[in-house]
Computed example of a mutant assay.
Amino acid sequence: MGKSARTERSRYESEVAAYVAAGGDEQVQRVITAVHGLARRLSQWYTQQLSHHDLSPGEWAVLRHLAAESDDNVSTPSQLADATAVAPSSMTHRLDRMAERGLISRTPDAENRTRILVQLTRQGWDMFRQVIREGDLVESDVLAQVPTAQRARLAQLLELAIAGLDDALK
């Protein structure tokens, strides 16, 4: 079977078998490999979806951070650079492009005039909502194979794994 003809399922089975043969615990490898495969495929789809909106993954990271992770939906360029793992100079260029498109606004901080505050504009919020709604359709399709009654349990189990990440990865 050529690489282009491989299904995600066959890739998963091959990877799990290789990891177990190398000494990995089968249950651990089944879970981690499945989560990684799902994340990989979703990432490919998200990148394609974002390009339809003329958004780069980096710009999406800024929108997502401002909408969901920053205090009061306001952040500084340095905080955004740190949150998205880019150099501050790269963040400046990214924010320039986003401001030109009307997705974000930049204003001086009234308490510290040397600091700039970045926040989503109405247009930025509209873009965020549109991307989320479109993504929700694909994500729903991904979960179509999981019975509705078991989705809450799956979410609980994954949340348990996430809860341990901060301690496990220190």
Rank of each mutant, 00 (worst) to 15 (best):
V28K: 12
R30Q: 09
I32N: 11
T33D: 05
A34Q: 07
H36I: 12
A39S: 14
R41A: 12
R41S: 09
L42E: 15
L42S: 11
S43V: 12
S43N: 11
S43Y: 12
Q44V: 12
Y46Q: 15
Y46P: 14
T47N: 11
T47H: 11
T47M: 13
Q48F: 09
Q49S: 11
L50P: 05
L50R: 04
S51E: 12
H52S: 13
H52W: 14
H52A: 14
D54F: 14
L55D: 04
S56G: 07
W60A: 11
W60R: 09
A61M: 10
A61Y: 07
A61Q: 09
A61F: 07
L63S: 06
H65N: 11
H65P: 12
A67T: 06
S70G: 02
S70C: 04
D71R: 15
D71S: 15
D72T: 15
N73D: 11
N73M: 07
N73P: 07
N73F: 04
S75F: 00
S75I: 01
P77D: 00
P77N: 02
P77M: 02
P77I: 01
Q79M: 04
Q79F: 05
L80K: 01
L80Y: 00
L80I: 04
A81H: 01
D82C: 04
D82V: 03
D82E: 08
A83S: 03
T84R: 03
A85W: 05
V86F: 00
V86E: 02
A87H: 08
P88H: 07
S89Q: 11
S89C: 05
S89L: 06
M91L: 05
M91I: 03
H93F: 08
R94M: 04
M98H: 03
A99D: 13
A99V: 09
G102K: 04
L103V: 06
I104G: 00
I104P: 00
T107W: 01
P108S: 05
D109C: 02
A110E: 06
A110D: 05
A110T: 08
I116A: 03
L117H: 02
V118H: 00
L120T: 03
T121V: 05
R122V: 10
R122G: 09
Q123K: 13
Q123Y: 12
G124K: 02
G124N: 03
G124R: 00
M127W: 08
M127V: 13
F128W: 15
Q130R: 10
Q130K: 14
